[in-house]
Design a protein around this nucleic acid. Sequence first.
RNA 1: GCGGACGUGGCGGAAUAGGCAGACGCAUCAGACUUAAAAUCUGACAAGAGACAAUCUUGUGUGGGUUCGAUUCCCACCGUCCGCACCA
Length: 807
Amino acid sequence: MDTYSPTEVEAKWQSRWDELGTNLFSRDDLATAEKPYFNLMMFPYPSAEGLHVGNIYAYTGADVWGRYQRLKGHDVFQPMGFDAFGIHSENYALKVGVNPNDLIPSNISNFTRQLRRIGAMFDWNHTVDTTDPNYYRWTQWVFLKLFEAGLVEKREAPVNWCPSCKTVVANEQVIQGLCERCDSAVEQRQIEQWFLKITNYAQRLLDGIENIDWSSRTLTAQNNWIGRSEGADIDFPIVGRDESIRVFTTRPDTICGATYMVLAPEHPLVDALTNDEQRETVEAYVEQAKRLDLKARQYVDRPKTGTWIGAYCENPITGAQMPVWVSDYVLIEYGTGAIMAVPGHDERDFEFASTFDLPIKRVIARDSSNNAGLMTEAYVGDGLLVNSGEFDGLSVAEGKRAIVQKLEANSLATGQVRYRLHDWCISRQRYWGPPIPIIYCDDCGAVPVPEADLPVLLPRLEQFKPDDSGDSPLARDTEWCSTACPECGGAGTRETDVSDTFLDSAWYFLRYPCTDTDEVALDVDMVKKWLPVNSYIGGHEHAVLHLLYARFVTMAFHDHGILDFAEPFEKFRAHGILSKEGRKISKSRGNVIIPDDLISEWGADTVRLYLMFLGPFEQGGDYQESGIRGPSSFLERLALSVAEASDGKGDEQVLQAMHRTIDKVSNDIEQLKYNTVISALMEYLNVVREGGRTCSKQELEPIIVMLAPFAPHLAEELWERLGHNSSIFESGLWPEADPELAKVETFEIGVQVNGKLRGSISVTADTSEDDAMTLARSNERVATHLDAGEVRKVIYVPGRILNVVVN
RNA sequence: GCGGACGUGGCGGAAUAGGCAGACGCAUCAGACUUAAAAUCUGACAAGAGACAAUCUUGUGUGGGUUCGAUUCCCACCGUCCGCACCA
């Protein structure tokens, strides 16, 4: 058919957009835009395989949003970049034996080609590539600013260590406790690493959730991840020593039910408190706990293990003596690394006590009927305090207050809020990342690299594989390592760890509007004009890490006077996941969809339209090979209609349907319900073409504008064929529904008798109940059912339903 | 285990301040056009009963409840998917 050839139309408009700079901003454009709208989407890791169909799904949905905003008259800035550093790229480079320095550029050019092909309106003048020294120079600058703000700290932390490869291995390289490469058991080791103190911002990050418009499941995930708990720190005096064990608990009300204490294996007091008889057992246990890799340690289903260390504590309320145990179910990184165990009211403690025959005591009763007898499981519900001496009869909430108050009076407790959130470890003992800009000097210690000396270039290493030295590969380049101390000018050595990829992506959105300058990281005026981001669309898998880190960096920069806003993304929406014929798409299943082939066969517009038609964008959809015919023939029919359209005025009935369609589409697109937007457009085209009628241009123009976000090339083409000579995206053409025309005058409503549909009548908005009943009676079928008994009640909801109760 | 989302024809999915279940599309079948095929157009398409007509009955995971009326609200259960995983 010569009315529509996707290949020609798409090539024509893509090159015209390039020629006219339709989607590009000059520095001046950025500075003078009147209605700035920053439409952001998560930048990809440029893999060697090329764009995944899931990427295309996400970017199309985000592009639809951007193009829609543009049709509403905004100046939409929609940049794209590449998150090319990181262990992903490095592992792949190792696998194929190519240096990542050589691999990344060709991957990026392939991605760029594919991204252009889907016809998204990216501003290719403002891209970022995290591996470009002109970018990571500023990533290092971000680190220095956080350092200045006192948010960087070096301390010991555990890493997974493979004793056979003699190297640090990342969590994702540990498969069921074994090293991915050599299958030997991985253990943990303590090494010095750099941390960003995100926990300083735990409460602020939590509070900020109130003021941002994000997908609720994303906010829930952040809320849970930050994990605020209110409770108390309580000191338990150690018997026979002038020292105590401090625990954190959210249930001080259950203190009288505490029957033993537990220390984490790494707790400093373990060694000090262990007596001679127990020493051998305890040391063996601690050693064994240490050998577990970081992942296996977190396995909940493992049976509880542990051993008594030969010491006792005194319960500060009851004065009872309680044995002190060591067990790996207590984690050193949370709270104080020690707990008071209340087996009667904590499931984990109950399991442990049952295993080791420790006493289980009830101190909370739901009511008087269950305060006696043997406990068969931990009771974690609400109730009243029992077996708690002077506190008996108090509710859980009252008990918490009363007990903490009493202990506070004796300086044995303080109210305490704790978070599960951990500080962000950014050290990676790897090659493919930005070197952390620190120089070690024997006299001055760890000194940050002066801003003027940035970037600290990542040297090209031919041997970038982690080796058995235990150090990062950069340590092998001794020439690179040795430098002068910036403070005293003496001999210095560079930090050889690189930073986490998440640091690259924690600030990239700030850089996009600033890429016209290499002088500074952030161009103050541009940042002021374009940020915070108006809309961010991306995968839900980044709900906690990336999205939290970006918020943290933004808040820290706000407090440090660099930014004048504290939240980076006003609005965030998580898109859904695409499946294929009901199954997850994955390489291992062998059901991947090759985007290039699909576009060659159907054209980018059809592919875009189909992907958006599959289901609600925020929920994802199921891709089925045959389904693409529908959207494809829809576009063809539309092109055909334009070719045949007359100049005359539109039919009144059709125009009414058109305004109802405009109304529905405008509502649904705001909610990202692209699937129903498309079905509404299809439905309208069916009305326009009904019975093979000839349509008019007036009936078609708005539908082409509304289709433009989904099928931009064809929309441009048809717009031109209808006699317009500027781009459809240039002048805020989004149609507005005329409420008078969109209004439905007469409509069919159902008539029910005893809740069962028996017919329908045609009414207007102001038809009275009596008139409706008369109309209903004139329907033979309804009348039969009405005559079966006596009318007891009539429910008439104008415009909705008429229901008659008869018996 | 905890948290979140969800369960509707052969399939993807519509419809929830409670009001005609199955929009739109795929697949399938029949017809028109065609020498033929493709494309296009027209029509049928939840299940069962029925003179295969009118019509009736059943039907939104299962079982209860509220209501004139429930896919939508409430309770219990079953199942699927996704997070987090011993956070005291």
